[in-house]
Amino acid sequence: MLAIDDERVIEPGTWRYVGLRMKDWNLWNVPVAARSAAVLEQHFRGNCYRLGKIQTRNVIVVEFDPIRLIYVRPLFRRYRAAALRTFPPSTWSIVIDHVLGRAIAHSWEYQYVLLQRLLNASINSEHALCERVLAPLSVHPDLCFWDARLRNKPLNRGPAHWGYEPPDYDPNVESGAAMTLKQRGRWGWALGTEDILEPHPELTPVTFA
């Protein structure tokens, strides 16, 4: 039976359908950066995988239906190739992007950064101006989550979408912003979620306990 929302049938292949599949995932439980592999494993209650023969120090894939997330070492150079092996094939031209700027993550000594796929290269370039190396942190949480600016990018919005320059990213400030079903679908698609989660032949379970 198809899901019903606002008395309309939500068809597969739409942003809203993906949004329904992402109903249990939010800006505050999908980390954009992690201090260590063990921290990722604990947060996702296991469900961590090695991608092919790539060392887990460089890439960790998290698979937890309906999501399949890819985290990479900030300075890992072959991140685009790894992402294209992880994300479902796309008929559109896509940009592979570090959700949290990799220079920021590296300077703050985070070992893993989440990747996403974007449809708009110019929007990605606009956000690059906000991804310079920031001042050292007084408190380093084990996990970083989304703020308003990071959320704007997969929604195809510039950094100043709300009419003002966004503040510097602060991992100690959580975003409580809600998303519409369509927005949640665009966000989920950026992270690799589609209508179904196809089996991936290159994933091997790993543990870091």
Rank of each mutant, 00 (worst) to 15 (best):
L150G: 00
L84I: 13
Y112G: 09
Q111N: 15
N152T: 02
V206G: 08
T204G: 10
A148G: 14
P66D: 07
C130I: 00
N152Y: 02
T204P: 06
I10Y: 07
G19W: 00
W162I: 01
H161S: 11
D147H: 01
A190V: 01
V72G: 12
L114N: 05
S175L: 03
E194I: 06
L100C: 11
D5T: 13
F76I: 08
A38D: 08
R78L: 07
E63L: 11
E63Y: 14
S125H: 09
E194V: 11
Q116G: 14
L155S: 01
C48W: 05
E63M: 15
I96F: 03
I67V: 14
V133E: 13
G13I: 02
G46Q: 08
P154G: 07
D170V: 11
P154Q: 05
P166Q: 03
I10H: 09
H140Y: 09
P74G: 11
Q55T: 15
Q42E: 14
P89M: 05
P88D: 05
P74K: 08
I67F: 05
P66M: 05
R21H: 04
H161A: 12
A103S: 14
Y164P: 02
P66E: 03
P159Q: 04
E11P: 01
L114K: 03
E109L: 15
N26M: 06
H140S: 14
A121G: 05
R8N: 07
N120T: 05
A38C: 12
R102Y: 09
R21Q: 06
G46L: 06
P171T: 04
E165C: 07
A82V: 05
W25G: 05
R102G: 02
P199W: 10
L118T: 08
H200S: 08
E7F: 12
K153W: 02
Y110C: 07
W15V: 04
Y79A: 08
H127P: 08
S175A: 11
V18D: 00
T204Q: 09
P88L: 08
P171S: 11
S125C: 07
G176W: 04
Q42R: 13
V32S: 04
G176M: 09
V139Q: 14
A178E: 13
N47E: 14
V30C: 08
C130L: 03
W146Y: 09
P88S: 06
P12D: 10
I104D: 00
L40K: 04
L129Q: 12
N156F: 03
T193I: 10
D195E: 12
Y112M: 15
G185V: 01
S122E: 14
V133Q: 10
L118H: 08
V9E: 13
N152L: 04
P88C: 08
L118N: 10
G13N: 11
S122K: 11
D168P: 03
H43D: 06
V62C: 13
R8L: 12
V61Q: 02
L119P: 06
D65E: 15
N120I: 02
V9M: 13
W92T: 13
I70P: 01
W189A: 01
V18Q: 00
R78W: 05
A128S: 15
S125Q: 13
G188W: 00
G19C: 06
L51G: 01
I94G: 02
I123L: 10
A105E: 05
